[in-house]
């Protein structure tokens, strides 16, 4: 990854954190959507705000981007307080909201022109900037097409391009890849990595554990409006314990026999009947070879046997006692104002 001299300069200029949340609280009537959330994001780094739907991620971002007033507490973006100097906050950050908020009746180029002129850039500045941005986001060919004809991934990329027109030092991305197919998601990750290499500070919310794992330097896990864990992806994975051995049995009627066999070689076995899977704690690859030979000598037919390192999914399970998907179903829609389309897309 290339780090330009510019980005280096920007990093050297860095003094305080780019984003700070200080005891943010947001209540809607009796409902507390965000409950005493504090964190800080150093310049040029990426913070992943991770949690299921309805956890309070969007509300947190809305408060930090001046769209919503905190009930108490405050936040600072590039050193500017959202309560006392919202105008300066708006000057120093870009926001890509949950739904791709580009104008679908304008072309890609016109969308960039729209935001560029609202930022006060001149026509010539916008022209050269939009050429760069469209190229950077692989939209050069689509630049003069009306956004209505864009795919979901293209809209997202344009959305991001539009947010970058005024070169914000801090960028908020609310579920940037929700509703994208896996390929577009990976493409967008690449773009985000390039931005960070250029010295941009990112705060992204996501319900995809993999995404936070891939992009974030630090992760804040939030559930029911509260921070329940914080750390680097590695630290969080360590919290959730060891790797696991996963055995998938070919025939459901052999599951019980397999369980018995496995149980005599490991400390404990977890059975998932639907998936015909047995899970047991493991220390490393040696366990895989050991258990493989055990099953080799038996009648039991296996589909798969392997080592599963803890994912952030396991972290979530460990922290909340439930899987991220279950949490989504339980809690329901993200609680913000009702003008937002609700992101129903489950996990891929």
């Amino acid at each position: 990854m290339t780090i330009t001299t510019d980005a280096r300069a920007a990093r050297e200029r860095s003094t305080g954190p780019a984003i700070e949340a200080e005891h943010l609280v947001k209540r809607f009537g009796d409902m507390t959507a965000v409950d005493d959330v504090s964190f800080s994001v150093p310049q040029g780094s990426v913070l992943g705000l991770l949690g299921p739907n309805g956890a309070g991620k969007t509300t947190t971002v809305r408060m930090m981007t001046t769209l919503s007033t905190p009930t108490s507490g405050t936040a600072r973006v590039a050193g500017h307080d959202v309560r006392t100097d919202p105008e300066a906050v708006r000057h120093s950050m870009g926001l890509t909201g949950q739904a791709a908020t580009v104008d679908e009746f304008l072309t890609g180029r016109e969308n960039i022109l729209l935001m560029g002129s609202l930022y006060g850039l001149s026509k010539t500045q916008i022209r050269s900037a939009s050429d760069e941005l469209l190229e950077r986001f692989s939209l050069t060919d689509a630049g003069d097409k009306v956004v209505k004809e864009y795919s979901g991934g293209m809209r997202r990329r344009l959305d991001l391009a539009v947010s970058l027109i005024a070169a914000p030092r801090v960028l908020f991305l609310d579920e940037p890849t929700t509703g994208l197919d896996p390929r577009s998601r990976v493409e967008l990750w690449e773009v985000l990595r390039a931005l960070v290499a250029d010295g941009t500070t990112l705060l992204l919310t996501t319900q995809y554990l993999e995404e936070a794992d891939q992009l974030a330097d630090r992760i804040v896990v939030i559930d029911h409006g509260r921070i329940i864990a914080e750390g680097t992806p590695l630290e969080l994975k360590d919290q959730s314990g060891k790797a696991a051995l996963v055995v998938t049995v070919s025939h459901a009627d052999q599951l019980e026999a397999a369980r018995g066999l496995l149980a005599s070689h490991v400390r404990e076995v977890h059975v998932d009947e639907g998936a015909r899977q047995l899970t047991a704690p493991a220390d490393g690859l040696a366990d895989v070879t050991r258990i493989a030979s055990v099953f080799d000598g038996s009648e039991i037919v296996l589909d798969d046997l392997g080592l599963k390192r803890p994912s952030l999914d396991d972290v979530f399970l460990h922290l909340t006692g439930r899987r991220a998907e279950e949490a989504t179903e339980e809690v329901g829609d993200e609680v913000t104002d009702d003008t937002e389309p609700d992101p129903k897309g489950g996990r891929p």
């Binding site: 769209l67 926001l95 909201g97 949950q98 739904a99 908020t101 104008d103 003008t339 937002e340 389309p341």
Partner: peptide, 8 residues
């Protein structure tokens, strides 16, 4: 959501 974008 475009009004939100303008508001930001």
């Amino acid at each position: 959501g475009i009004i939100d974008r303008f508001r930001s």
